[in-house]
Design a protein around this nucleic acid. Structure first.
Ligand SMILES: [Mn+2]
Ligand SMILES: [Mn+2]
Ligand SMILES: [Zn+2]
Ligand SMILES: [Zn+2]
Lengths: 134, 134
DNA sequence: ACACTTTTTTAGAATCATTATAAACTAAAA
DNA sequence: TTTTAGTTTATAATGATTCTAAAAAAGTGT
């Protein structure tokens, strides 16, 4: 069960520690992908686990995973940073009342063609954020 | 010169104080619209003015103007909040290296048609963020 | 198993953008 | 002018995030 994460971590040059494997389990061992803040994740880990992981380690691990491309950061203006376990190119609804992110499939949004070019720069990502109100 | 801002503020239920008029001057008395952080704005005010405005007032005023729709907040993940004096519907490049926002005209991005609907919610805004790298 | 190196974890402190407080001030209303 | 409500400001508080440095764990070679 853990073997795949041990491999994944090793292949990324990250040592498969108890903490990282636990975090992998919480993040990736689910049917559905999800959006979370560091605080959300810390709570989820506490619920699913006996041993606590320090907040510093959670921050470190999430950033390491983001750098490796196993997590994405969602650009949104809130006091906390949102992450996404869905690393495919996709867009989001943001429910302003509930402060919840909802995935939009690519087919929910037409293809986006950016006509403007900036000299010497290339496009890294194109993300649509649709804010929802009641 | 200030008369139009005095009117604008009065019509918004905001008293036209010396500070607010000064901030209006810095924000809206320019040919081109621009993007800024609170820190940027504070520096700009210092340069253009003799009397200093307290940081608290700058925060209060920017938020008041945002609430009235005279400024927009740009959804982006940085340690500071970005605002925009261009309140028309438009999208952005974000130059990751320079940490600078660049406007995209509506014609630079095709029309975006969100097909998915969420029960009881309506779309407030649709914003595209295009990240640029070298 | 053991010695040695490198990476990781962690508690706690530091940072820093933003927000709250509450007293002094100012604009508008009566 | 007096009163009222709104505004400014210095200062403190908040809170998410990052930093620090020491202890622990993992990997490597023998
Ligand atoms: Mn990050
Ligand atoms: Mn705001
Ligand atoms: Zn998502
Ligand atoms: Zn803009």
């Amino acid at each position: 069960m853990n073997v795949k994460y041990i491999e994944k971590l090793r292949n990324s040059g990250l040592r498969p520690t108890k903490q990282r494997l636990q975090i992998c389990d919480v993040l990736f061992e689910t049917k559905k992908t999800f959006h979370f803040t560091i605080y959300d994740l810390a709570k989820k880990i506490q619920k699913q686990t006996n041993f606590d992981i320090s907040l510093a380690t959670i921050y470190n691990t999430v950033h390491a995973f983001e750098k490796k491309g196993y997590l994405k950061q969602i650009p949104i203006n809130t006091n906390q940073t949102y992450f996404d376990t869905n690393i495919t190119d996709h867009h989001h609804f943001f429910d302003l009342k509930e402060e919840k992110l909802i995935d939009l499939d690519d087919c929910d949004v037409g293809p986006i063609n950016i006509k403007k070019k900036i000299n010497g720069k290339k496009i890294k990502s194109v993300e649509v954020l649709v804010k929802l109100e009641d």
